[in-house]
Design a protein around this nucleic acid. Structure first.
Lengths: 207, 207
DNA sequence: GGTGTTATGTTGTCAATGCCTACATTTTGA
DNA sequence: TCAAAATGTAGGCATTGACAACATAACACC
């Protein structure tokens, strides 16, 4: 009856996300995906030239959602540059914890390898935002002795490292029974004090 | 003439590493691997039950080499717990930069997913070593206000995050023309002062 | 030195997959 | 209305991972 599916593109993306969540990126097969949805094995090609193209689209959607989450968190943090950068770091890890599927796709080596120009530009722009945020925090008094690039790379490394460490839920789970969200916040608070005020207080006490 | 290859197992591993270095983990095919070496397509099965088994073996070799590199770096750092932990962090990133192939295999999601018990145990043990190192540094005066788990997770996240950030050599190369080894060292020095003396000096100046 | 056993490699086969092409049906818009 | 574009189908092809049956080499033991 309905020869045309109507919204196959979105259905493909949704079901693909489900399959990846259940197993992994590698386990995703275009033919199985088509079978699941109840459409012929050639149909997906009309919407995604390639398997890479589909994963690319998923990664893009993930980046969109993540940047929205980060924006929101940063705005909620107010005007203090340290608070904003701190919030950005925490929000990054939180996104990874709450959206493991998207996060996995976004960081999968094969996906990154075949990322198209648009996706690459998006990633680049996002990194640039983090860089600016780090520089702002530095100019407000955070790590004044380090150059801006080091400060940026340090905070970025901590955030993505924490995300990858805490989302790694394979056999060797080092964080069994631990509140990883809380741990994530604590990590970021070590990276950058949660406010300019906290930074000053820290400097007063140290002698 | 020589119907038996003689050391097919090692040859497979070596050639596999080359192929991965040239392209990627996904691009590795058992049949192409066999063709390259000049052996029938069924031969690899005698040495590796599975494609996963081969990658597992490669990952294991990578972890072995890395732990040797870390041991060496830590011993060379002397007795100061801060210097040792600092050296461990730097050596981790350096290993990733100098052995991108092994590092990629070791951290590839598909490889981790199919890691056998032995490999998992090895990874677990390695993490435990880092945890001990972090605790020692903490007891020597580093970040005394944070709990040991936070201190461990913070330093580990920074190291693996820096490794992944600095080895990500895709289109969007944010670190074009930058001395990444130097940057890596600077990042780790922000994470943990390179010596107990440096830590004290830092605390004196701060007021 | 012969011989049975194990280790190693070969060949053939199968199902699954990604991608391509030719074709069918629906939708659209001038 | 009807031609063109969009969307879905069906079949085919080369590649791949895994398996099984077989061949040969290496080795241990008498």
């Amino acid at each position: 009856m309905t020869y045309h599916h109507g919204n196959l593109r979105q259905t493909l993306l949704d079901r693909a996300a489900e399959i990846i969540a259940e197993s992994s990126v590698e386990a995703l097969s275009l033919r199985k995906l088509a079978r699941d949805i109840g459409v012929s094995h050639g149909a997906p090609a009309r919407h995604f030239k390639d398997k890479s193209a589909l994963l690319n689209a998923l990664a893009h959607e993930g980046h969109l959602r993540m940047s929205i989450a980060l924006d929101k968190a940063v705005e909620a943090a107010g005007m203090d540059p340290l608070a904003r950068h701190n919030a950005m770091g925490k929000a990054t890890i939180k996104f990874a914890l709450k959206n493991p599927t998207f996060y996995n796709v976004m960081n999968h080596p094969d996906v990154l390898k075949h990322a198209d120009a648009k996706l690459n530009a998006y990633i680049f722009a996002q990194l640039h935002l983090v860089q600016t945020s780090a520089s702002d925090a530095r100019e407000a008094g955070w790590l004044p002795d380090q150059d801006p690039l080091t400060v940026f790379a340090f905070s970025t490394a901590a955030a993505i490292g924490a995300a990858s460490l805490l989302t790694a839920r394979h056999e060797t789970d080092f964080f069994e029974g631990i509140d990883v969200e809380k741990l994530a916040d604590q990590i970021i608070d070590v990276v950058i004090p949660p406010s300019l005020k906290a930074l000053k207080a820290l400097q007063e006490i140290e002698p």
